[in-house]
């Protein structure tokens, strides 16, 4: 069984009077240690699928499980705790808490987990070193470049050794060089720390980094290749 299991997922949004079928019967299994890309045109349902896998959104039908936890019947608090321990999230932008410095943003997750203060600081600094931000620990998000902010977001997502990291178009707001750097770094974390990554993109170059490429169109998986 994969670390992520989605079965027969359907999700319909109401936009005024129109029903938008964002996901129509999606089943997907991702193995531990994977580095998978969800690719597809805008509006195809990538974000919706990632949000459902992360428990931020609930499907209308079908089942989802992450690391053996089936979401059905879980309360908001239980889902939050599941995310805290098993799921890392990286968004396109504005990922960080603006009032916290880089190192505090990373520490915050460990604070929620109840890690001791001294240990928190040490681990947060080490992981920031890993993502190439040594020396920038005490900068606030506003004092970091877009690429650096995304690196902090990656550091925060992986610091708790989650089962999966979900990244929704993490490079979309970056220039291609910075985007490449970030992907290289994510790939390195995937290989060195065995973190499972699932990310969405519609950028051809980003798809090339993936070891598995899942193509979505109009709320359906139309292709699934392992490279």
């Amino acid at each position: 069984m994969g670390i992520v299991e989605c079965k027969d997922i359907k999700k319909t949004y109401q936009q005024g009077k129109i029903e938008v079928h964002a996901l129509k019967d999606v089943s997907l299994s991702i193995d531990k240690g994977g580095f998978a890309a969800l690719a597809g045109p805008s509006g195809s349902g990538k974000t919706t699928l990632l949000n459902i896998i992360g428990g931020l959104d609930q499907p209308d039908s079908g089942s989802v499980s992450v690391a053996g936890n089936t979401f059905e019947k879980m309360t908001q608090s239980q889902l939050a705790l599941l995310r805290l321990h098993n799921v890392g999230f990286i968004f396109q932008s504005y990922n960080l808490i603006p009032v916290l410095s880089a190192v505090e943003n990373v520490e915050f997750v460990m604070l929620l987990q109840g890690v001791q203060a001294t240990q928190r600081r040490e681990r947060a600094m080490a992981i920031l070193d890993d993502v190439g931000l040594e020396g920038k620990y005490h900068r606030r998000p506003a004092e970091l470049s877009g690429g650096q902010q995304q690196r902090v977001a990656v550091a925060r997502a992986i610091v708790s050794n989650p089962s999966i990291v979900l990244a929704d178009e993490p490079t979309a707001n970056l220039d291609s060089k910075t985007g490449n750097g970030l992907l290289e770094m994510m790939r390195k974390m995937n290989e060195e720390k065995k973190v499972t990554f699932i990310f969405s993109t519609h950028d051809k170059m980003v798809m090339d980094y993936a070891r598995r490429l899942v193509l979505i169109r109009d709320g359906r998986i139309v292709d699934d290749k392992i490279k």
């Binding site: 992360g54 931020l56 908001q76 608090s77 939050a80 705790l81 599941l82 995310r83 805290l84 321990h85 799921v87 890392g88 999230f89 968004f91 504005y94 990922n95 960080l96 808490i97 603006p98 915050f108 997750v109 929620l112 925060r156 997502a157």
Partner: peptide, 16 residues
């Protein structure tokens, strides 16, 4: 709002 969304996404419980 967005910040609270991020906080929820990274695992902050409603109580917190």
């Amino acid at each position: 709002t967005r910040e609270f969304g991020v906080l929820k996404a990274i695992g902050t419980t409603p109580g917190r």
